[in-house]
Design a protein around this nucleic acid. Structure first.
Length: 576
RNA sequence: CGGGGCGUAGCGUAGUGGCUAGCGCGCCUGCUUUGGGAGCAGGAGACCGGAGGUUCGAAUCCUCUCGCCCCGACCA
């Protein structure tokens, strides 16, 4: 039984000055966590109980799926990370340190290497596969900007699993098993979430999905189709382009367009010159970029920006992508800043990519590669040749769902899980092979799967809190029931204690506010702030042989006969 | 890493060169109070983030530095 008279807990009346998002504010105010450094937090008793409840749910679901729990150190030697090149690739996000002999170590940001090596050390036959193993571990990433309390910390707890299979079919099966286990886990945690297709990105591999918990303060943006349920990370959103249906355009025609370096100024000129009705979306924007120091031109409709993140996700193999700078323009005098068109891309030696909206046969108003000159009727396929169509333009609310063509909405969310068909990258680098049926050596194929355990505390808080405090689902809450004794009479405290003990005997986890000096108001406020799902008040009504029962979530209040209280409360709580 | 903001007691804050740094919450003692963050009285708690400088005098002005928060870039 948690007794508030002795619990290490001090609730705060005011919001902490350094907390902005609700979960952070309330977790601090309700005495669950305290900040130690940027992105580094301590758990007080209530917080740690909550954290462990989440951890327990995750562990139970992983075990139920047949995955085996192992545990690695957080302190790791450099060598394995050297072999996969991540010692360098991870950059300054990696916490590095040296031992007294000057040897390099790191604090694990994720553990693909170690898991791969563990399997390599034990297994060498296809008969040993498939295998899925996991750990619940503290991870360290020296984020440039930790934020939102425990949503993005530099030290955090993650459940990470890895699957090992002999072939792609096996990987897919392991992947789906994890997917199912994740669904069960997040359902049990009481989280609302969407499963969203993501881009595999630098990790390689064929498929990846994110579990996103919608929430205003989330830092991930994704698109959602409310009609068919299609959901995708913004980077993975596929454009639904309408084929060109107009008549064959007239011949290309150049015209003077002084002082029109921007799309807006160009549209204004067009409306003056060729009559009203021209829109930014009739123009073609040529965005010049350096992809690993090779020039590329990306075509998007004039009313859209290039989304660099999205473009990079769709340019596999490109490490560094940046916009043209003046120095780059200097190297390509044929590219006239503000008047670039795709007509001469080939001649100039710039790779020409286009957003799918630049459909074949469509014609555009764009730069003429001459100062103060634009051209119209510039036609895709006739006047320029697109090398490759790429998802490049920003995604907007109202864009069409690629599945059912309904306008999509854009929403924000916290990433609470990510499942990943990794493939053979790590097995290859660390030489994890097994013999197949034919005695032939095969590189193992892997999946990796993560759940942010500490982040889930914040995600649940974000989704469940209200204006007066936290509001946990029962399984996650630090206790099932919060008993408040009001007043000063010994009789009240005695009855409340007896009730608390009886409920505990029935298997309920009980928090008892037995503080002798706190006023009733203080106790009510604290109970609401702390967010245990049921509150029982022993006080005023005791003289009539009654206690009050409150449901935190709904605010619903009822009176219960003291004599029936134990059975009544037990059944209400357990059936909630 | 770019931009913005902020560091004064456990928490929230006032204090634009002049006495012993003020207030609220919380904490301690006593009395009263006790169903919606009680009242009165008394008390403890701060080298004003740190270093250097300007000045007769610095929380306050200057320089450097450290830390924290927010937006963006970044982030299997």
């Amino acid at each position: 039984m948690l007794k508030m008279s002795t619990l290490l807990l001090r609730t705060l009346r005011d919001d902490p000055a350094d907390a902005e998002v609700a979960s952070h504010r309330l977790l601090v105010r309700a005495g669950y966590v305290r900040r130690i450094a940027a992105g580094v937090y301590s758990w007080l008793p209530l917080g740690y109980l909550t954290f462990r409840n989440i951890e327990r749910v995750v562990r139970e679901e992983m075990d139920a799926a047949g995955f085996q729990e192992v545990h690695f150190p957080a302190l790791l030697p450099r060598e394995p990370y050297e072999k996969t090149n991540r010692w360098d690739e991870y950059g300054s996000d990696l916490f590095r340190l040296q031992d007294r002999r000057g040897n390099d170590y790191l604090l694990g940001p994720t553990h693909e290497e170690m898991f791969t090596l563990m399997v390599k050390g034990e297994y060498s036959s296809y008969k040993d596969l498939p295998l899925s193993i996991y750990q619940i571990q503290t991870k360290f990433r020296d984020e440039t900007r930790p934020r939102s309390g425990i949503i993005r910390g530099r030290e955090f707890v993650m459940k990470d699993s890895y699957s090992f299979d002999i072939d792609d079919a096996g990987l897919l099966a392991s992947y789906n098993k994890h997917r199912d286990a994740y669904i069960k886990t997040f359902d049990r945690l009481g989280l609302k979430y969407n499963i969203v297709s993501a881009v595999s990105g630098a990790m390689g591999g064929s498929g990846s999905e994110e579990f996103l918990a919608p929430c205003e303060t989330g830092e991930d943006t994704y698109v959602l189709c409310n009609k068919c349920g299609y959901a995708a990370n913004v980077e993975a959103m596929v454009t639904k382009a309408q084929a060109y249906s107009g008549s064959a355009p007239a011949a290309i025609e150049e015209f003077d367009s002084p002082n029109t370096p921007t799309i807006d100024s160009l549209v204004e000129l067009l409306n003056g010159k060729f009559g009203p009705g021209h829109k930014a979306s009739d123009t073609l924007k040529n965005v010049l970029l350096m992809a690993d120091e090779k020039p590329i031109s990306v075509l998007v409709p004039g009313d859209r920006e290039v989304d660099l993140k999205r473009l990079q996700a769709n340019l596999p193999g490109v490490q560094e992508l940046r916009l043209f700078e003046d120095a780059d323009f200097a190297k390509f005098p044929a590219l006239v800043k503000g008047y670039v068109g795709p007509q001469d891309a080939l001649k100039i030696g710039v790779a020409l990519y286009a957003d799918p909206r630049i459909v074949p046969g469509s014609h555009w108003i764009t730069g003429a590669n001459k100062k103060d000159t634009h051209a119209r009727f510039v036609t895709n396929g006739r006047d320029f040749q697109v090398e490759k169509y790429l998802e490049a333009a920003e995604v907007r609310a109202g864009d069409l769902c690629p599945k059912c063509e309904t306008p999509v909405v854009i929403d924000r969310a916290i990433e609470i899980g990510h499942i990943f068909q990794l493939g053979r990258k790590y097995a290859q680098a660390l030489d994890l092979t097994v013999l197949d049926q034919n005695g032939k050596s095969q590189v193992v194929t892997m999946g990796s799967y993560g759940i942010g355990v500490s982040r889930a505390v914040a995600a649940i808080a974000e989704q469940t809190h209200d204006e007066i405090g936290l509001n946990w689902p029962r399984e996650i809450a630090p206790a099932d029931i919060h008993i408040v004794a009001t007043g000063k009479e010994a009789e009240v405290f005695r009855a409340a204690l007896t009730l608390a003990e009886d409920l505990e005997e029935k298997g309920l986890r009980v928090m008892f506010d037995d503080r002798p000096d706190a006023s009733a108001g203080v106790k009510f406020k604290d109970a609401e702030l702390i967010g245990i799902p049921f509150i029982v008040i022993v006080g005023k009504a005791l003289s009539e042989g009654k206690v009050e029962f409150r449901v935190r979530r709904t605010g619903e209040k009822s009176e219960i006969e003291l004599l029936k209280a134990v059975t009544e409360i037990t059944s209400r709580v357990l059936n909630s």
